[in-house]
Design a binder for these strands. Structure first.
Lengths: 132, 132
DNA sequence: CCTTGACCTGGAGCGCACTCCAAGGTCCAT
DNA sequence: ATGGACCTTGGAGTGCGCTCCAGGTCAAGG
């Protein structure tokens, strides 16, 4: 019987079995995952590669609803590459902006860390030379 | 009457008035925001600067509960700089890791964008030279 | 034969971070 | 002094993305 069980797919993708079922229910898969004779899901390569893409989109902050829109486009087959491109490029811009924002905020936090580091070192110095 | 009204503070901080009240209720402020004679909040400089720090922590993904822990430390006054440092440094590491992860995923998405760009351009070429 | 355990489904529940609302008081320009 | 914008509180509601659960099927091992 080819393909991975849902538990194996969970390990492989780093998601939980619950999340895999949820993604499928929610229309994020390109097609329903195949089933064994007894109705158990079998994840084949194509499924796993698609889940990897979904994971990348999610990990970069794309909402489920937009992942579904993308899945819808891919599912419809060739001919809408321009639309897919627009969606991905839009997402790219969003991510770049977020990255820049986070980096700026992190810079400010780093400066704060610098201040506390100085304060703590000064305290240590004082302790090292007691009697003021 | 000194300080900004909640509406003005909202504009200044980029948060909503509701969120400002929520932050205060949830223990994220260093002390309760001052009030006018009639009980309306007045945000002074110190409040606004603290909210900016909170915003930076939130924007870099720190959960409310950790911001509150940090606020608790600062509220307790001098002497726990080492603890604050530990909290901020821990957060810094988390953020750096996230940034790296997002950048890696974005790289993969960029490669996908490249593929679609090629596909779309090829389609355009075909249209430009009809009758294959 | 019986238990164990992996899987199934539909649906409820949860944690997070807000966001909104009702009912009422305040401010101020005309 | 009146209308309308703004503020107060406590508490309920929302959207997101899972996460968990009950009750059931099925196959394999002891």
């Amino acid at each position: 019987m080819p393909g991975l069980t849902i538990a194996q797919a969970a390990v492989h993708t780093g998601l939980t079995a619950d999340t895999l079922r949820y993604y499928e229910r929610d229309g994020l898969m390109l097609q329903p995952v195949g089933r064994s004779a007894t109705g158990h899901r079998r994840y084949v390569d194509r499924d796993l590669r698609w889940i990897e893409m979904v994971t990348r989109l999610r990990a970069t902050g794309m909402p489920i609803r937009d992942v579904r829109r993308y899945a819808d486009l891919v599912r419809r087959g060739e001919g809408n590459e321009a639309e897919r491109l627009e969606l991905l490029r839009g997402h790219r811009q969003t991510v770049l902006q977020q990255l820049a924002e986070v980096q700026e905020h992190l810079g400010a936090i780093d400066r704060k860390i610098g201040i506390y580091t100085d304060a703590v070192e000064q305290r240590l110095d004082l302790e090292r030379t007691p009697g003021r």
